[in-house]
């Protein structure tokens, strides 16, 4: 039976090992945004042994390219983008201490294996719910690669950001489990 958790970042292995595919989690605290272009640069820094623009230990990375904020708002609409484009980068991020990813859509076997090996979780947020999710973001600050526009790395403060556990640290996959339950053959 799926459970509901309220977690604050950074996440520990103890936090992530308690979660199972299908659980609902409300995340609060600091999370970081990165899409394909930013991931490419972050992984290059890791490979060169250079410092990242944020502390990767226990970090949660949100795959998002928000709309520009309206005057007075910290951010515009900010729902998840499709995650498979980050598949080649995520295992390296997890290996170096990141504990969570928020996106939408299925991941590669390599990412699922890395979640098992490094206590990482892949969370799904509702795609296309950008107005609702944007309101859970209380502040946003570009901390790297401003030239990438919507794809720049942002530091976000979030409050009760709603996500579902897709891939847990035990090799489970909600997309497979859910589909098998409702497929009519």
């Amino acid at each position: 039976m799926a459970k509901t958790y309220y977690l604050t970042t950074p996440l520990s292995s103890e936090d992530t090992r308690a979660l199972k595919s299908g659980d609902i989690v409300y995340i609060s605290g600091t999370i970081f945004t990165a899409r394909d272009a930013a991931h490419k640069r972050l992984v290059e820094l890791i490979e060169k042994g250079e410092e990242l623009p944020f502390d990767i230990e226990g970090s949660v990375i949100y795959f998002v390219g928000p709309t520009p904020p309206k005057p007075g708002d910290p951010i515009g609409s900010a729902g998840p983008t499709t995650s498979y484009r980050m598949d080649s980068y995520s295992p390296i991020m997890l290996e170096h201490g990141s504990k969570g990813m928020i996106g939408k859509g299925k991941r590669s076997q390599e990412v699922k294996d890395a979640c098992k090996m490094y206590d990482g979780i892949y969370f799904g947020a509702t795609g296309g719910a950008g107005a609702l999710l944007g309101k859970k973001i209380k502040s946003a600050e570009v901390i790297a690669y401003p030239e990438l526009g919507p794809e720049a790395v942002r530091k976000l403060e979030v409050e009760n950001f709603p996500v579902t556990v897709i891939n847990d640290t035990y090799g489970n996959d909600l997309y497979q489990m859910g589909r098998e339950m409702y497929e009519v053959k």
């Binding site: 509702t126 107005a131 609702l132």
Partner: peptide
């Protein structure tokens, strides 16, 4: 029939209401 999917669609509809009332983009992918 799935409770998980039902909740997702509920969020999608709530999102549509927020977007309309507050004039925010429905999705960041415009």
């Amino acid at each position: 029939k799935s409770h998980v999917s039902k909740e997702v669609i509920r969020q999608i509809l709530e999102n549509a209401n927020i977007a309309k009332d507050e004039k925010r983009p429905l999705c960041q992918d415009t």
